[in-house]
Design a binder for these strands. Structure first.
Lengths: 236, 236
DNA sequence: GCATGTGAATAGATTCACAGCG
DNA sequence: CGCTGTGAATCTATTCACATGC
């Protein structure tokens, strides 16, 4: 779980830098900062202090500074952070300066909704492959491509050099699908199937489980309605 | 952020118990245990040890025991946990023994996909109200109800005694919608809109941000492909 | 003997508080 | 003087290790 990787990474501008791994919690907040910075840029704001950025992201100001310090010393004391510069740095860290090739496996309600989500192409995530076990769905247009039969998964994913896969299959087949994705060279997976899936070392997996989210809310609703004790608000 | 609530809560069986607030991280795992327990029950397994439960949920065995100990001493030393009994206890803690009345605001791609998700009614989450600003969507059937105009939100949500709301609107209107939901008495909100929303104390908010999930994956994909340094696997 | 329940140890993340620089 | 960058303090969560009890 500890990543003390040190890697030498080439930058756009030709320079290189020794980069340390960034804590997972920080990585998860970088997109949040990025969004706020892009909004600020749209409004011609050139500079933001950690206080303002904190207010706009719901994060503590010290946290903002500590997070950003992981990218390097990119702020100016007495002034703040240069919006454009920081946008570039965060984008580079997140690998958003190059297009990411994404596959969707399972083109049901959720898979289709995700495929149609405009936020993805807008941020450089290109859906270059889609699969479904249902022959009735094969051929259906999705993103830049059409749905293909599940049997072709390994072949197409390998060919298309997919790096990121979104799994929206029924739970029963999710592990099998994930195993095939790994064989096909996928290193990052976002799993929506409500089941535990395992991946080998070196493959990064995140999961989003909607039923679990609602059950968590249910706990707090019960507290709120039956307890009626001052329940403190929780992180935004 | 600290919840040291102590509340006296009436149970189904008529008993009462002084119950302490459960750590948030534990609450988030209870549905995971519940799922594994229900699967075990289906296969007529009557008893599970923390080791087995750990293996089936991807959680450390000590963690399982500590989590379950927050519910009370429901295990038997030398034996394990009674599956059916534990299912009941967790369900009760999560408030799953009573139906939860849910509203969906924003019936776009994602809202529709969620509304059609079978996992919700199966777990007692009843969609009793749905709203959209688009007049073309008004009247469309969703769950047990039909889509109503956004203008009726406060009225209908109040009337229907909605406790949980799912927000799948565009980001621009999400804060406004959330404010109205709070006015209408909603205490728990699941926000899919890609924007920071604020809620007053006493209202519980969770967020799911798909664009952010992908950007996080992008970071790790970049690491995996450009660094090629042994990146340790991360929590399943 | 075997698996729970839990104090102690560890790890990780957040917040505080302030030195240091522009 | 204001705001960053960061060590120290704190809080939360996880894991270890073992006494406890069926």
């Amino acid at each position: 779980m500890v990543c003390s990787i040190t890697a030498v990474i080439g930058r756009d501008d030709g320079t290189t830098a020794r980069e340390r791994a960034i804590p997972e919690a920080t990585v998860a907040r970088l997109p949040v900062y990025l969004r706020a910075l892009l909004e600020a840029a749209e409004q011609q704001t050139t500079t933001l202090s950690s206080d303002v950025l904190a207010a706009r992201t719901g994060v503590n100001a010290a946290q903002v500074r500590k997070d950003l310090s992981h990218l390097g010393s990119y702020g100016t004391r007495g002034v703040g952070y240069d919006v454009e510069f920081l946008v570039r740095q965060i984008s580079r860290q997140l690998g958003l300066n190059q297009d990411r090739r994404v596959a969707i496996v399972g083109v049901g309600n959720l898979g289709q909704a995700l495929a149609r989500y405009h936020g993805f192409p807008a941020r450089g995530f290109r859906i270059v492959a889609a699969f479904d076990a249902d022959p009735g769905k094969v051929g259906m247009p999705i993103g830049d491509t059409v749905v293909r039969p599940a049997a072709e998964l390994v072949e197409v994913v390998t060919q298309e050099k997919v790096g990121i896969a979104i799994v929206t299959t029924p739970p029963g087949v999710a592990q099998d699908v994930v195993d095939q994705l790994v064989v096909a060279g996928v290193t990052c997976i976002l799993n929506f199937a409500p089941v535990l899936v395992r991946v080998p070392e070196g493959v990064f997996l995140r999961k989003v489980d909607l039923a679990i989210e609602l059950q968590i809310l249910s706990y707090y609703e019960q507290r709120a309605s039956s307890g009626e004790v001052g329940l403190d608000a929780l992180p935004a």
